[in-house]
């Protein structure tokens, strides 16, 4: 018994070591969305391209889509744009844009320079839908299934690796189910 007790510090140290090692490499700034498994919040916002047209949550019915939150003022959005173009053109992904706390003119100049990968763009100058979605740092990309339910949220830029390793598996899983 006494002998075994001598191993106690070693066991404790290994236990704490495993616990701490598990935390290494995790990015604490990436939070899981509170909306996973819930429908896209109700909204009523203008179409960026056609100011007279009002869009609502029915936009996400019928097809799996990516909802990409972006703005002209967001530097990382410039970085990821080329990859969004690639996703839309090469992979045929339906990407809905949420133009977040931006100005229409700036949004257009951004798209003129970098191209337009979006099937539709929701114009949210006051960030109201962004707030309901729990957006805390653009760019963010949501996977939304054909029923309009949020399935995944990625915070940060989308690139080829994020697509292959994270988003595509989620989409495959969602499409297999719905």
């Amino acid at each position: 018994m006494k002998r075994l007790m001598l191993f106690l510090p070693l066991v404790l140290a290994v236990g704490v070591g495993i616990f701490l090692a598990a935390g290494i490499g995790k990015d604490p700034t990436r939070l899981e969305s509170a909306l996973i498994g819930k429908p896209v919040p109700e909204f009523s916002l203008a179409n960026l391209r056609e100011p007279g047209q009002t869009l609502d949550q029915s936009l996400f019915r019928g097809e799996v889509s990516l909802l990409n939150v972006w703005a002209e003022w967001c530097p990382a959005c410039w970085d990821e744009h080329e990859d969004l173009m690639w996703l839309a053109n090469e992979k045929g992904v339906r990407i809905v844009g949420l133009n977040y706390k931006d100005e229409r003119e700036k949004a257009f100049s951004f798209l003129d320079r970098l191209g337009d990968p979006y099937q539709t763009i929701i114009y949210d100058p006051r960030g109201s839908l962004g707030f309901d979605l729990g957006v805390y740092g653009a760019p963010e990309t949501f996977v939304i299934d054909a029923e309009g339910v949020v399935r995944y949220r990625h915070v940060g830029v989308v690139n080829e690796r994020v697509w292959e390793e994270i988003l595509l598996p989620v989409i495959n899983r969602v499409e297999g189910k719905s």
Binding site: L31, E32, S33, A34, L35, D132, L133, G134, Y136
Partner: peptide, 8 residues
């Protein structure tokens, strides 16, 4: 706020 941003 928790409904939007999580327990965090």
């Amino acid at each position: 706020l928790v409904d939007r941003f999580g327990e965090f």
